[in-house]
């Protein structure tokens, strides 16, 4: 028996909106720790790792570890039917091939349930080693989204270079080139508006903008984004989900042959 009640149901709606275009089908794993997912895109270039900790749910019952295969497009369709203020409860019986999403309005005057068929998915779980990153960049998530969107109108790839002076995002395309430099800036009114570069060892990596743009669909989940970079290994783009966990995107770099 599985029963997860999330008072802030909009979080789950936002999570699905942020990953449904990157990954088609995925297994959601439920354990005492929480509700999690790890899935790669079909080309094995990007990976999403989600964790919603059990403590973040108002009610969390998971009698045994279970893995539920879902089509994320279909799940997103169902969650779109929940209001932004609705409480969302996920329910599944042992051995059942369906999951039920229950939506309750905040005033309890409307209750809806949507049942979705589960799927068998061959999961390709990757072991992600602990890495020491050369540079960790924390910046407003909306600013990062803006930069990725702007640069993708000029070129297909971005070079992200971190130096002591700041971080530079560069692209080139048929019509020209573009460079955006963000300097460390901690003298702001609100901490979430700061740009912070931790451990600023020089690092320069190239990535496909198409994927970074896809990751920025998670912007509504967090005011800030943390980007961890090291030479010649995948970048981690992390959006923290307040009180609950995180959504992390990994992207393999483009490397000169």
């Amino acid at each position: 028996m599985l029963e997860l009640r999330l008072v802030q149901g909009s979080l789950l709606k936002k999570v699905l909106e942020s990953i449904k275009d990157l990954v088609n089908d995925a297994n959601f794993d439920c354990s005492a720790t929480g509700f999690s997912l790890q899935a790669m895109d079909s080309s094995h270039v990007a990976l999403v790792a989600l964790l919603l900790r059990s403590e973040g749910f108002e009610h969390y019952r998971c009698d045994r570890n279970i893995s539920m295969g879902m089509n994320l497009g279909n799940m997103a369709k169902m969650l779109k039917c929940a209001g932004n203020d609705d409480i969302i409860t996920l329910k599944a019986d042992d051995g059942s091939d369906t999951v039920t999403f229950m939506f309750e309005s905040p005033t309890q005057d409307k209750i809806a349930d949507f049942e979705m068929r589960l799927m068998d998915i061959d999961s390709e779980h990757l072991g992600i080693p602990e890495a020491e990153y050369h540079a960790i960049l924390i910046m407003p998530s909306a600013e990062f989204a803006r930069i990725c969107k702007d640069l993708s109108s000029i070129g297909d790839t971005v070079v992200i270079s971190v130096t002591k002076e700041g971080v530079k995002f560069s692209t080139r395309g048929d019509i020209g080139t573009a460079n955006v430099v963000c300097r460390q800036n901690t003298t702001v009114d609100k901490p979430e508006e700061a740009t912070v570069i931790e451990m600023p060892e020089p690092v320069s990596l190239t990535f496909a903008l198409r994927y970074l743009n896809s990751f920025t669909k998670a912007t509504p989940l967090s005011n800030t984004v943390t980007i961890s970079l090291s030479s010649e290994i995948p970048v981690v783009v992390e959006y923290k989900i307040a009180e609950m966990g995180y959504i992390r995107f990994y992207l393999a770099p483009k490397i000169e042959e």
């Binding site: 790669m40 080309s43 270039v45 990976l47 779980h125 770099p253 483009k254 490397i255």
Partner: peptide
């Protein structure tokens, strides 16, 4: 020539 790598080159399949 710049080539797109895959995650499976960096992470082990479990």
């Amino acid at each position: 020539l710049i080539k797109q790598t895959m995650l499976t080159q960096f992470f082990e399949m479990n």
